[in-house]
Amino acid sequence: MRITVTVDGTTYSDEVEPRTLLVQYLRERLGKVGTVVGCDTSNCGACTVHLDGHSVKSCSVLAVQADGCEVTTIEGLARDGQLHPVQRAFHDNHALQCGFCTPGMIMQAIDLLAEDSDPEEQAVREGIEGNLCRCTGYQNIVRAVRDAAHEMRPGAGPEAERVSEATMGTQAGVHRS
């Protein structure tokens, strides 16, 4: 059947089989391979995108269900070459290693911050409980999300909150968390 979906600001109209998953449509039809598939049971969250402004696991949504909707993927976050603050915070806090979970993790973190602009540590942990990471042990992801929250908070100067390379360097060897 024919669907019309706006993905990362571009409107697409396509004929799809009803069984096509949204993530397959994104990856295989639109070439949006930044969004990945990590499991069959919607546990890992690697495929998380925003559907009409809310985070969803795109492996558990049919493309036909997204007809008439707006989808934002990891590829649609940066504006005019500027990273989204959550993307930047993931980099600044070494919140990724292999990077496979990262697109979903970032998309879910953005959703979380839309609900709670300054989450406590436990709230961050619960907010990303539907996203599995096997590399980082989550600690730096949690740090990145809170760092991004501070940066995005109105009135907080981004420079004041950013973890710079210089301060990281002088802290070498002592990392208490």
């Binding site: 949006k32 391979v33 930044g34 969004t35 990945v36 993927t73 990891i74 590829e75 976050l77 940066a78 990273l83 993307q87 993931f90 980099h91 600044d92 070494h94 990724l96 990077g99 990262t102 697109p103 970032i106 390379e165 990281m168 360097g169 002088t170 802290q171 070498a172 060897g173």
Partner: peptide, 25 residues
């Protein structure tokens, strides 16, 4: 602590990240 001007010992942010955080994988 790392000596100034020296790379080894410094908490360099990763080169790899730029692609991975934007989905350019």
């Amino acid at each position: 602590a790392a000596e100034p001007g020296q790379e080894v010992g410094k908490g360099r942010l990763r080169k790899e990240d730029a692609r991975l955080i934007t989905g350019r994988t």
